[in-house]
Each structure stands twice: as structure tokens, then as C-alpha cells.
């Protein structure tokens, strides 16, 4: 089933095939989260946006004119949902809730370190343009290839490469200058 192409899975999901839709969710949940995170910069919002996007995509599956390009279509929905969420949140002006603690109850030290690192990463990512954030997360966090990103997001491969280059450079500069990163690396 994993080897089935998106087009076939989308066509089956249109007929209400739960298994096919499940495969699509499993295949793109990480990427959807990464794209949502690149917009919102917050775990909770990224999670909400990504989950809602799958449901919106299912309801509008007939609007996906090229089922083979489902991923790109889905990422557009995710991006729009995430942007709407950010807009709503900014209107509400709510305080940012710290990242949710895990269910696997890590040690307090690890939680602190993880939170600090996340905060730092969030700052570093926030300094990047949205497209660079999205591409670097898809590529270096989710493992998508240049070609896949270009095809799925409908961007020229050169643009993807360029965004990735600048994003990596900026991230390295910010993160390598931080004492936490230095400690973390020297500890390893």
C-alpha cells in the first residue's frame, strides 16, 4: 500500500476508502506539521493547522484536480490554514503557552534543555522568511529531497536550492553563536 501513488490513493479516498486516506495522512503528516510550524512557529498551532488541513482536504478532495500532486495541494491548504490561525491568534493577542510537556515524562533537566533549545530554534527560524523556513524544515527535518520539494510545492529546483542554502546559513550562524549549542555539542 505504501508504494501506491498518491493519485490512486486520492481516488480511493474520494470513494470513502478509509485505508487509502489513512495512508495519505501517514505519508504527509510530518510534512504538513513542518509547513504549519514554519508559518505559526508554535507546536500547538502547527498541530491544529495540520490536523484541520487533512480534514479540509478530505472534504474538498474533488477540488484536487491533479490527484498525483496531492502533496503540493495539501501543503497549500496547510499554509493557508496556518496563516489564518496566526491571524486569529494575533487578533486575540493571547500569551504564548510553553511547548507541551511530553507524555514520556523526561527528566526535568532534559525538559529545560529541550525547552531552551526549542526557544532558540524558534528564534532562529523566526528570523527566516516563511518560504525558507518551510523548505529547510521539509528538507532537513522531514528528509524531503530538493526534487520532491520543487515538485510538490510547485517551485523551480533552483529556487528551492537557493532558499535552502540561505536558510541553512542563517540557522548555522544563529545557532552556532549560542552558548547552549556550544555546550550541547562539546558535551557530545
Amino acid at each position: 500500500m505504501e508504494s501506491q501513488d498518491d493519485g490512486e490513493l486520492v481516488r480511493r479516498a474520494r470513494r470513502g476508502d478509509e485505508f487509502a486516506f489513512g495512508v495519505l495522512v501517514e505519508r504527509y503528516q510530518r510534512a504538513a506539521y513542518a509547513v504549519a510550524y514554519s508559518v505559526t512557529g508554535r507546536h500547538e498551532d502547527a498541530e491544529d493547522a495540520a490536523q484541520e488541513s487533512f480534514l479540509v482536504a478530505l472534504r474538498r478532495l474533488e477540488e484536487c484536480r491533479s490527484p498525483e500532486r496531492f502533496a503540493g495541494w495539501l501543503m497549500t491548504i496547510v499554509r493557508n490554514r496556518a496563516r489564518n490561525l496566526v491571524r486569529r491568534e494575533s487578533l486575540r493577542e493571547t500569551d504564548q503557552v510553553p511547548a507541551a510537556a511530553s507524555s514520556s515524562t523526561p527528566t526535568p533537566d532534559r525538559v529545560t534543555e529541550s525547552r531552551e533549545l526549542r526557544g532558540l530554534l524558534r528564534e532562529a527560524l523566526a528570523g527566516l522568511p516563511e518560504m525558507q523556513r518551510e523548505i529547510v524544515l521539509l528538507h532537513d527535518l522531514e528528509g524531503w529531497k530538493h526534487r520532491e520539494i520543487a515538485e510538490r510545492l510547485g517551485l523551480p529546483p533552483g529556487t528551492v536550492r537557493s532558499h535552502l542554502h540561505f536558510a541553512r546559513k542563517a540557522l548555522r550562524e544563529v545557532l552556532s553563536a549560542s552558548p547552549q549549542d556550544a555546550d550541547r555539542r562539546s558535551g557530545k
Binding site: 498541530e47 529547510v136 527535518l141
Partner: peptide
């Protein structure tokens, strides 16, 4: 290197 740096952003790190 970047992947390692971004790793903590993945929700599955804690869960």
C-alpha cells in the same frame, strides 16, 4: 548538522 539542530522541533522527540 542542521537536521540535528532542528531535531528537537519534531514532536516525536518527546513523544
Amino acid at each position: 548538522a542542521v537536521a540535528e539542530l532542528l531535531g528537537p522541533l519534531s514532536p516525536e522527540v518527546d513523544d
